[in-house]
Amino acid sequence: MKKSHDEELIGDVHALSAGLKAYITSYTAKSLSTCREACGGHGYAAVNRFGSLRNDHDIFQTFEGDNTVLLQQVAGLLLKQYREKFRGGPLTVTWNYLRQSMNAYLAQPNPVTARWEGEDHLRNPNFQLDAFRYRTSRLLQSVAIRLQKHSKTLGGFGAWNRCLNHLLTLAESHIESFILEKFIEAVKNCPDESSRAALKLVCDLYALDRIWNDIGTYRNVDYVAPNKAKLIWFSRIILS
């Protein structure tokens, strides 16, 4: 990669490695805490090793790049790609979906799609991936507008700090879109039928859980109707 001097490829790989490292280590830390809490008082027992696992893993959120700093790098590269899009330049492979989904965001949400409530629809990979990418595109455009607005009075550094939480959410959303895309591909290409069915359940649970986690974003713009939001919550409970 270094020998090719392909700056776009280097930036692409850096964004993915930085974002995945930050997302996965944070997710693992939360999962360990959830497992410990699920065991009640037994979770504190040394024999269950939750304490040692949490202690051993905690440093992973800092070394090889602090997670907050790494996510800011991902957000910065997203904004760079956003600027390239409106200059008419090509997008690199990982960011190609932004071209289509940004156009979808600029259009009004489809009122018919927003009200589809069938289980088959909610577990359809196309719906799940479109929802993830829609959220990322919406966050990207809104934070770009906020940065431009605040930079006039606060300067670039001050504007970045003012929008920091927004930028971190944007980076996490992009990484979740990438994870879901690869998860769907892995399920589709799984050769064993029973394993594929089990993986599909886990994939659906991940997708619907993440959509529900940010349901306010979808509801605020009527991307998801109220009854559909309730069904997403119910389907998430059933799958878990």
Rank of each mutant, 00 (worst) to 15 (best):
T94Q: 06
W95I: 01
N96W: 02
N96Y: 07
N96S: 08
Y97K: 02
R99I: 00
R99E: 15
M102W: 09
N103Q: 14
N103T: 08
N110T: 05
R115D: 07
E117Q: 14
G118I: 01
R123Q: 12
N126Y: 09
F127W: 09
Q128E: 10
F132D: 01
Y134P: 01
R135F: 07
L140G: 10
S142L: 10
S142P: 01
R146C: 07
H150G: 03
K152H: 09
K152W: 01
L154V: 11
F157H: 08
F157W: 03
G158F: 06
A159E: 04
W160A: 08
L164D: 01
L167A: 00
S173G: 13
S173H: 13
H174T: 00
H174Q: 00
I175Y: 07
I175C: 03
S177F: 00
S177D: 01
F178C: 03
F183K: 07
F183P: 02
A186N: 13
A186S: 12
K188R: 15
D192C: 12
S194D: 15
S195T: 14
R196I: 06
K200C: 08
L201Y: 02
V202S: 11
D204F: 04
L205S: 10
L205Q: 12
L205R: 14
Y206V: 06
R210Q: 15
I211S: 04
G216F: 03
D222N: 15
V224T: 03
A225K: 05
A225R: 05
P226G: 10
A229T: 05
K230S: 11
L231V: 07
